[in-house]
Amino acid sequence: MFLWVIQRDLLLAMRQRADVLTTLFFFIIVVSLFPLGVGPEINMLRSMAPGVVWVAALLASMLSLERMFSSDYLDGTLEQMLLSPQPLSLLVLGKALAHWLVTGVPLVLIAPILGIQFNLSTDALLILAVSLLLGTPVLSLIGAIGAALTLGLRGGGVLVSLLVLPLYIPVLIFGAGAVEASSAGLVASAHLSLLGAFLLASLVLAPWAAAAALRISIE
């Protein structure tokens, strides 16, 4: 059943590839805008790169949050999911995982290429990819709570950013921090372990909170 949810959402994403690509291109464009805004000075860009890529990843992941539940809500399939004999939190976990596979994984794959634009070292590029790999699922999981809370509200898309962006801050700090540490020649393992801890904590808590939020929103 858990697998059915993931399979279904991936199938739907395949049928609407444009949505997936929009998020990815948004990410690429935002990252590419920064050098144009602050100038092409290579050392400054290198020191900015971790923050820029991570902020762009936050925004890109958030951009697609509204879709996580709203289309299912509008056509009545979400109602059916709530009536499933499986625990709702498991189902939410499946949907968050599918969201990550569709929006997070492409970011992880493309980020090292964008890092090259900022002249990051090979080590830093690797750490960037690893930090995104650990951090983006947390974004999807926390985002699920926001998406569930704002389900069906007018202006839900803007509202969801107001709710989840402050909660994304720890991920941003340690995600970008890991890459910075690595470019400064330090060990990034402490940052990465903390990101891993966030991931575990949100895997346990977020689906539960999001499920409670969904029940409230659909009532």
């Binding site: 402050p166 909660l167 720890p170 700090i173 340690f174 909170a209």
Partner: peptide, 25 residues
């Protein structure tokens, strides 16, 4: 009421994490 409560509780869980992260940063 209920949605606000969930958000406030998620916030309470996060405040120590946020504070700690910001301090570290």
């Amino acid at each position: 009421d209920k949605a606000g409560a969930i958000l406030a509780l998620v916030g309470v869980v996060n405040i120590p994490i946020i504070y700690f992260s910001v301090k570290w940063w």
